[in-house]
């Protein structure tokens, strides 16, 4: 303490300025972020043969980002995040069949439907909120949705999947093509816009209160944070995001199968997020990239047993310490950054 004593009586104005600068710092763009998005944009032009894979990555990235909002910021664990993804996928598919083939409407409706489900189920996570009950409740909701999709075959096509999804050109101009060119551009733009919004949200006072809830919800309540309402809000927002991700999958593949609500979706997205690291928004995106590349590479060797490798990665990741992974990525990103 002695070494810093002389700084303690610095003039008030300077402390005020420093405080303001510190609060502003979280919003400033880092060069690595710009590089990340420039790289994503460049991939569109430079990797035309990989557009289908890149689209999958963008969608999975958005899905994982939505999980990061609740897990990484509010500390709410979920084993059933796939419910929102699946609901969004089905709503987008049904919209195109029964209502309109215009893609943005489908995207919007999917987001609204998933958000409603999120808002309705979020209160279930508040009473006696231990991790275990949250895991079970979210899992239960996802299983319910799976059963519903399975049983309501007249609506969803059941195990055969939803056939006949047709999507109009985006804005009436850009037709979805077989090479996935339009699909990738579309997914990337949606991802980027939603990312910008999420970035704004997590660096706002609201976002800070979420981090406080994650850190210590008892104390958060004691400084006046309405913990329950904030959790419902972010859970709803994450559900909207996941629903939109599901809708993107439907619209770019023009098909919905029961697989979109299967348990492994929820488990995979957890792995993706953990691979990239939780709580800094890029984790989902980085994780999706790594996950899909791994999947691509490993299933080229043993297509049927890809699941084994996912399992092994999870086990090893946990045993060596999950928190070391984001630290690794972040160190790479922060190198050369301001104030590090």
């Amino acid at each position: 303490m002695t070494a810093t004593d002389d700084r303690a009586d610095a003039p008030a104005a300077s402390i005020e300025d420093r405080a303001l600068a510190l609060l502003a710092r979280t919003r400033r763009w880092h060069w690595a972020e710009a590089a990340f998005w420039l790289g994503a944009a460049a991939s569109f032009a430079l990797l035309p043969d990989s557009h289908l894979l890149l689209t999958e990555i963008a969608i999975l990235g958005l899905f994982a980002l939505s999980l990061d909002l609740i897990l990484g910021y509010a500390g709410v664990v979920s084993l059933g995040h796939g419910a929102f993804f699946g609901l969004g996928a089905y709503v987008a598919g049904l919209t195109s069949i029964h209502l309109t083939a215009e893609p943005l409407t489908g995207l919007l409706l999917a987001g609204v439907a998933a958000g409603l489900l999120g808002a309705l189920t979020a209160p279930l996570l508040l009473r006696r909120a231990t991790d275990l009950t949250r895991l079970m409740v979210t899992l239960g909701v996802a299983m319910l949705l799976y059963e519903a999709a399975n049983r309501m075959a007249w609506l969803t096509g059941g195990a055969d999947g939803l056939q006949g999804v047709m999507i109009d050109p985006i804005l009436g101009r850009f037709e979805f093509d077989l090479m996935g060119r339009t699909g990738y551009a579309y997914s990337l733009v949606v991802l980027f816009v939603l990312f910008l919004f999420a970035r704004r949200v997590v660096t706002s006072p609201f976002g800070m209160s979420l981090r406080a809830i994650r850190g210590n919800s008892l104390r958060a309540a004691t400084v006046g944070v309405p913990v329950g309402r904030r959790i419902i809000a972010i859970y709803t927002m994450a559900a909207v995001y996941a629903g939109i991700a599901g809708a993107l999958l439907t619209q770019t593949t023009m098909f919905v199968s029961l697989d979109v609500v299967a348990f492994h979706r929820s488990a995979d997205v957890l792995l993706v997020l953990v691979l990239g690291g939780i709580g800094y928004l890029y984790g989902g995106l980085v994780g999706a990239l790594v996950f899909k590349l791994l999947q691509d590479g490993l299933s080229a060797i043993t297509p049927q047993y890809w699941q084994f490798w996912i399992g092994l990665i999870l086990v090893v990741l946990v045993l060596i310490g999950r928190d070391r992974v984001p630290a690794l990525w972040r160190r790479a990103v922060r190198r050369g950054g301001a104030g590090a």
């Binding site: 895991l135 792995l271 049927q304 699941q307 084994f308 399992g311 086990v315 946990v318 045993l319 999950r322």
Partner: peptide
């Protein structure tokens, strides 16, 4: 001593490995 999230990830991993290994 780890978080429930870690335990869940770990044990799901084991399940996935078991399923695929049995299949194999």
């Amino acid at each position: 001593s780890r978080s429930h999230l870690d335990q869940v990830l770990f044990s799901i991993g084991l399940v996935f490995m078991t399923v695929a290994a049995t299949d194999f």
